[in-house]
């Protein structure tokens, strides 16, 4: 299993325990007292390490190669997922998956960024970085959801929109802008959940909604820590510092008033147990869904507007110029 740098002490101890266990089972010497002590120590060590993760640790966790993707969560969270394809104008972008499904018996539209789970799939899905046709497919199905009064669930997990020549030619900017614009006005509930990396405009194009949740170890930022470091300090090596300064973790976004609730993760990260993680998501998603469905459609759009209107930090003096 791929482990992360900051988890090394945990891994070392786990290995030691496993060693002692195999030794006990093959020899006469009984070490179970010793093992019990070590297991207690492991629990404490895990508590220490996973409760004091730095922003950079969380970035690593959010990018973990085994971290569950949209297609890993969908079968755990929804029934009868039926994937639908294409933007009806250019093509089908595999970096976004979308379709209809049932959520606790009720019809919903599900849309999410989709990374590949190996190199081959990553190439096919352009590493989960969508082209304009991906965003337009998402918008087409969101409009369909609105027509049939289905709530929308968006799972966000992308480094950003694909930076390519063809993407620019086909209007990457316009596609992102259009999704933001239209999502602001959809009359059905929209719930967005950042499950991995929330990278810039490419994430926001599936991210305008009534509720925004983030998994405990996910990130959401205007630029990657590496990009920020290169731009601000001309040194991509300062990414660790940028991860702290830029305030990109779930707790940071909660305190900035952007995220409504943090979804806790399985100890050691979502990749340890995708099924259990889906249950933790469900525990937050279901009550939010119930609450939003009670809200009138027009009120939903107004509340969404107010929610975004409030975001920002600035100073204001009254000049007396405004009448």
């Amino acid at each position: 299993m791929t482990g992360l740098e900051f988890e090394k002490p945990v891994r070392d101890l786990q290995e030691k325990i496993a060693e002692l266990k195999s030794f006990t089972s093959t020899s006469d010497l009984d070490l179970s007292d010793e093992i019990e002590k070590l297991e207690l120590r492991l629990k404490k060590l895990e508590d220490d390490i996973y409760n004091s993760m730095t922003p950079w640790d969380r970035v690593q966790m959010a990018r973990h190669p085994n971290r569950p993707t949209t297609l890993d969560y969908i079968p755990c969270l929804f029934e009868n997922f039926f994937e639908l394809h294409g933007d009806r104008a250019y093509g089908d972008d595999a970096a976004i998956v979308a379709g209809i499904a049932k959520y606790h018996g009720q019809p919903v539209t599900v849309i999410g960024h989709q990374r590949g789970r190996d190199t081959k799939e990553n190439i096919q899905r352009t590493f989960g970085m969508p082209h304009p046709e991906g965003y337009r497919k998402a918008l087409r199905l969101m409009k369909q959801a609105e027509k049939f009064n289905r709530p929308i669930v968006c799972l966000i997990d992308t480094k950003g929109a694909y930076p390519g020549k063809a993407a620019e030619e086909r209007g990457q900017s316009e596609a992102i802008a259009r999704n933001i614009f239209e999502m602001a006005g959809l009359s059905v509930p929209i719930i967005c959940i950042v499950i991995g990396e929330g990278g810039s405009g490419g994430a926001l194009a599936l991210g305008v909604g009534d509720r925004l949740f983030m998994l405990e170890n996910s990130t959401y930022s205007v630029i990657s820590p590496e990009g920020a470091a290169a731009l601000l300090w001309k040194d991509a090596g300062l990414a660790k510092r940028a991860a702290e300064t830029m305030k990109i973790t779930a707790p940071d976004l909660r305190s900035l008033g952007i995220v409504d609730e943090i979804i806790p993760e399985v100890r050691g990260g979502a990749h340890r147990d995708a099924k259990k993680q889906a249950e933790l998501i469900d525990a937050v998603l279901q009550p939010a869904m119930k609450e939003l469905q009670k809200t009138e459609h027009a009120a939903l759009v107004d509340q969404r507007y107010e929610k975004y209107k409030r975001i920002g930090g600035y100073a204001e003096q009254t000049t007396g110029l405004k009448d």
Binding site: G201, V208, S221, V222
Partner: peptide, 13 residues
């Protein structure tokens, strides 16, 4: 940071 990103949503709305 992300507050700037959210201005895209605010102005779009």
């Amino acid at each position: 940071g992300v507050l700037s990103l959210m201005q895209m949503a605010k102005t779009g709305a």
